[in-house]
């Protein structure tokens, strides 16, 4: 039974299944343009708010506020965007379609992965729009091609990791409404108690220690360094370690929860 050829077969089947389910999630983007629009417009409004309303009052040291802001706002957008995975997973689970998928001879991992990757595509679209708007409101980075590739890589790694956490929340939540609140309570403190909008040096000690050491700050500082040349320190390596570790832990948990989940 457990010959290597049947293993190869199973692996290629799982990849095909995952691809089919990714295609399903990507179709959802085109069928539900309102969601894409909302997910893109909201962070743009945040950016305009911080750029023009609060920004003038925030001292970032050397750089202009808009240059400082873009890394933080991109990460915040990616974090909230990743939460759509918890919604799409929770919707599947509530609607009974999960029972259909589970009665199929496919890997349970594929269903969750389909959502995660589909949402990654959606968030990438939003991120591109966001960066274009950033340039329009005065963002002037000095990143080279290699820097940009690293920025894109970090953003994808971060979104992918957050999407898996969101998938776990979607599988644990009792209702679709509960999912939205759970996500908010996780993402709000992680993105605001960070270096996203203000330098951490302005924060009270306890908060500052949290903000400086939590993973979201590392990825923001790493991207900021690549964009405008702020000190890199260990931010890049810490980001890669944190979010790779999150993926390694979250993927099997999500797959296991999905297998165990039975509607009703």
């Amino acid at each position: 039974m457990n010959t290597s050829s049947s293993f190869t077969n199973r692996t290629s089947n799982t990849l095909t299944d995952t691809w089919i389910l990714i295609a399903r999630s990507i179709k959802h983007i085109t069928k539900n343009p309102d969601q894409l629009l909302g997910l893109t417009i909201q962070p743009i409004m945040f950016m305009l708010l911080f750029r023009y309303v609060f920004g003038g009052a925030i001292n970032t040291g050397g750089s202009t506020y808009v240059n400082f802001l873009v890394a933080g706002i991109l990460i915040q957008m990616a974090a909230f965007g990743a939460l759509t995975t918890s919604l799409s997973v929770a919707t599947d689970v509530r609607r009974g379609i999960v029972d259909r998928f589970k009665s199929l001879p496919i890997a349970s991992f594929a269903v969750v992965a389909g959502h995660v990757v589909g949402d990654l595509v959606r968030n990438t679209i939003s991120a591109v729009v966001m960066i274009v708007v950033a340039f329009l409101v005065g963002f002037r980075p000095n990143a080279g091609v290699a820097d940009w590739l690293s920025i894109v890589g970090l953003l994808l790694l971060f979104t992918f990791a957050m999407s898996w956490i969101a998938a776990i929340m979607g599988l644990l939540a009792k209702s679709v409404e509960a999912v939205q609140w759970m996500g908010f309570f996780v993402v709000f403190p992680l993105t605001f108690a960070s270096a996203a909008f203000v330098p951490t040096s302005s924060m009270p000690t306890g908060l500052r220690i949290f903000a400086e050491n939590q993973p979201v700050t590392h990825v923001i500082e790493a991207m900021r360094s690549l964009m405008i040349g702020t000190p890199m320190g260990n931010h890049m390596s810490m980001s890669v370690i944190w979010f790779t570790a999150i993926i390694i832990v979250a993927v099997p948990i999500a797959a296991k929860l999905f297998r165990r989940h039975v509607s009703k």
């Binding site: 399903r24 609607r95 009974g96 029972d99 259909r100 199929l104 001879p105």
Partner: peptide
């Protein structure tokens, strides 16, 4: 077993958006 069965549950288990 999953290769031999078809399941129709109590709630229409289809993708609403597709």
């Amino acid at each position: 077993v999953r290769h031999m069965i078809g399941l129709t549950g109590q709630y229409a288990a289809v993708d609403e958006l597709l």
